[in-house]
């Protein structure tokens, strides 16, 4: 199938893109890598009047680091995340996750910002953002806003991003020393969207100061931080001790739905298994 006809303009600056977006109103659509958008266009699921190409905006480029925070330009391609020494050093969870995103040819063009703004509930990176307590910098006609990752994902393909706003930068706090991360997903085939996936960030070792953020994806309509399960683990004497209660708590944390690949019961089972295996991995890392 071929896309509906639309107009296209390549923006040179963020201001120009914002102005174009405002002028286009409902008919405007941003494109960066296009790896989620173009399939939807080709399937005639979307009919924008104007495509505004933000792939070349200098404001969206770059990976930088300061004393407390890593800053990822929204235009950072998946391949750049995978190859960045800064990401490797400070955000190993992202590096673990990004290789599960589709395939090399897609990762070469798909962007972090596009991935997050698309908000596919089975996507890997949104879950990592919540686990890592990322902050999204968005810019609109009214200026800048900062949105916590936990508040950014609103539902199926739905985010807190306004129709006239552009996601510019993602800022992620540098993890404290000794932080541990786990990433795993259960996909039928390599590169497919997962039936269920889990990203975990944790730091601290003693029960008093241990903090853990297990975030599930592919389970509901958006990535879900399993708060009750985390609480069970943080209150337990050890991860192993907290496992059973945490698995039980997932029944309250998660609300899986039936879909083509699996019914809700299967998904819950997979989530509980992922949690068990994730904790085992974190324990092993702690020993290592």
């Amino acid at each position: 199938m071929k896309a509906y006809a639309f107009d296209y303009v390549r923006a040179a600056t963020l201001d120009e893109a914002l102005a174009l977006l405002e002028r286009a109103g409902d008919g405007g659509k941003l494109v960066a890598g296009g790896q989620s958008l173009v399939p939807a266009l080709n399937l005639r699921l979307l009919a924008p009047q104007l495509l505004i190409d933000i792939a070349h905006l200098p404001e969206l480029r770059g990976i930088t680091c300061d004393d407390t925070t890593i800053h990822l330009g929204a235009g950072t391609r998946h391949v750049e995340l995978a190859n960045s020494p800064l990401v490797a050093e400070h955000l190993p969870l992202l590096q673990m996750a990004v290789r599960h995103v589709a395939h090399a040819a897609i990762r070469n063009r798909g962007t972090l910002g596009g991935n997050l703004a698309h908000a596919d509930p089975a996507s890997e990176l949104p879950a990592c953002m919540i686990a890592l307590e990322a902050v999204m910098l968005v810019v609109g006609p009214g200026g800048e806003r900062r949105i916590d990752a936990a508040d950014f994902f609103k539902g199926l393909y739905e985010t807190a991003l306004g129709p006239d706003e552009i996601l510019v930068r993602i800022s992620i706090p540098r993890s404290p020393a000794g932080a541990r991360f786990h990433f795993n997903e259960l996909a039928r085939r390599a590169g497919d969207y997962a039936m269920a996936g889990l990203a975990i960030a944790m730091h601290g070792n003693s029960p008093q100061d241990m903090r853990i953020r297990p975030v599930f994806f592919g389970i509901g309509d958006r990535p879900v931080l399993a708060r009750q399960a985390a609480l069970c683990l943080e209150q337990a004497a050890s991860l192993q001790d907290g496992l059973a209660a945490a698995q039980q708590a997932l029944l309250g944390d998660l609300d899986p739905q039936d879909d083509l690949q699996a019914d809700a019961g299967t998904r819950m089972q997979l989530a509980q298994v992922l949690l068990k295996r994730g904790l085992a991995d974190l324990v092993a890392q702690g020993r290592g």
């Binding site: 199938m1 071929k2 296209y8 390549r10 494109v31 296009g34 790896q35 173009v38 399939p39 080709n42 399937l43 495509l51 190409d53 792939a55 391949v79 395939h103 090399a104 040819a105 897609i106 070469n108 063009r109």
Partner: peptide, 28 residues
């Protein structure tokens, strides 16, 4: 034409790319 089968893979600026997922205007 939705980026799944890989049959249209080409190189764009040295990087393999799905030609069906890249609008020609994007490749300017």
């Amino acid at each position: 034409e939705h980026g799944v089968c890989g049959a249209c893979t080409i190189r764009v600026d040295g990087a393999i790319t799905r030609a069906c997922l890249l609008l020609a205007v994007q490749a300017e």
